[in-house]
Design a protein around this nucleic acid. Sequence first.
RNA 1: GGCACCGUCGCCAAGUUGGUAAGGCAAGGGACUGCAAAUCCCUCAUUCCCCGGUUCGAAUCCGGGCGGUGCCUCCA
Length: 478
Amino acid sequence: MALRVWNTLTDQKEELKPIVPGEVGIYVCGITVYDLLHLGHARFLVAFDTAVRYLRFSGVKVKYVRNWTDVDDKIIRRAGERGIAPTVLAAQFIDEARKDMLELNVVPADVEPKATEHIAEMVDIIQRLIDKGHAYAVNGDVYFAVRSFPPYGRLSRRNLDDLLSGARVDTNEQKRDPLDFALWKATKPGEPESVSWPAPWGRGRPGWHIECSAMCQKHLGVTFDLHGGGKDLVFPHHENEIAQSEAASGKPLANAWLHNGFVTLDSEKLSKSLGNFKTVRDLLQNWDGEALRTFLLSTHYRSPINFTYEAVAEADRRVDVLYEAQGKALAYLAQKKFAGQGKALESALTAFREAMDDDFNTARAMADLLALYSQINAKVDGKAAPQEVADLLESAKVTGAGLGLGWRPATEAVLRRRTLAAARKGIDPQWVAERIEARLLARKEKRYPDADAIRAECAAKGVELRDGPAGTDWRVPA
RNA sequence: GGCACCGUCGCCAAGUUGGUAAGGCAAGGGACUGCAAAUCCCUCAUUCCCCGGUUCGAAUCCGGGCGGUGCCUCCA
């Protein structure tokens, strides 16, 4: 068994060979916190959360570092609009982001460094770059001299002349070369004190790229295993990160670079300028976080995933299937007075590993997971030996946990999902209970047309009645 | 203009170090049900945008075309 990952640097799948056997250091470029999370954030969070879960599932000791970018132009502007300090604004949105992440079952990273807490490390790298002739200071700004670093462009596979011929190149006159980028931005008049730090070249704040170079080096070392982020970070962010870090250290930054694809809406990238972005918070008004996670994992992480309500509804139904089958299996085991312990099947574990070892193929792993639940249903229907059911159930739980799905206790999950769905649709559980009582009476008296009318009445409100041996239950389908 | 990626059943989506098309949804049939729901069983792409080529063999490799998207500016 060997995990193979797609490495943007080499443009191929290659076996992950940790620097320290059995241990993996991974850095993922996090969120610039000036607003609520949008679906694109959810995608990279879930993608890398799943990658980390799988590494741990494989017995690897992982150190996961995901930063918070808490100082940048947009944060400063928005904080100014609201009359609060940029750091306060950033702290607020970090809190909000954490709430959403909890719903998406995204575990906290082992280290979640903030840019503002690593200014000294950044200054240090910048100084080294100046000393080595890779950077220069002009009027308090410091720029990285792209032409001083020959490998520049390797990650994104573009050459400097192509970049220059690109339609829009910054014509900042302070730069020696239009391609050079800022390492340090001098504080401008009117900018808040709280985002201004002293440096040998004058007060200022860091450029965007340098923070990641400083944070990953501090927490993972000069060279580490995996570096990830969204595809849109390949250029210029990661290209610049590599240039800064490697020019300063003379050593490779990360051995493999992982990039997730975009979330699209009507097949177009979500973007604020198009006005088509969706916040996670908005979506959570209408969907269970687990459904969103299921939706995001239904496509391979490197491919684009198109957001539609139908797709999320389908994902939501999949979550239903999963917990319904769990509940069904547990009820069966209880009925059979099964007191044993299920043992995950080797065949299921192998299938899961094969899928995930292939560059985290969650789409395949999810298909396998659903197949397990299908088998559970078939076994229960076929009155199979309880041990068989218990083993399948354990297999599903273990592999599901590897994906971050199906982790809640079944009865709790079903009830929770129903409660959330009812609340969203303005359905009063008390009213449903009364309807069920009325229908029960009608059925007892064989007034079937009346009973059916009540069923139809409930259906019209989005409530589905389900008759079972233990009475009538209800749910709110997606 | 430069550089990439993508195009598989009505919809979603695996499969691309070549070996003879997973799965889900939808649809149809059956079992179960007073009717339903859920569940189970069965059916559902000789074919992978088009045209050439390489090969014993290609969805997978090569060339050309058509269509879509992204990056080149802040962006997950």
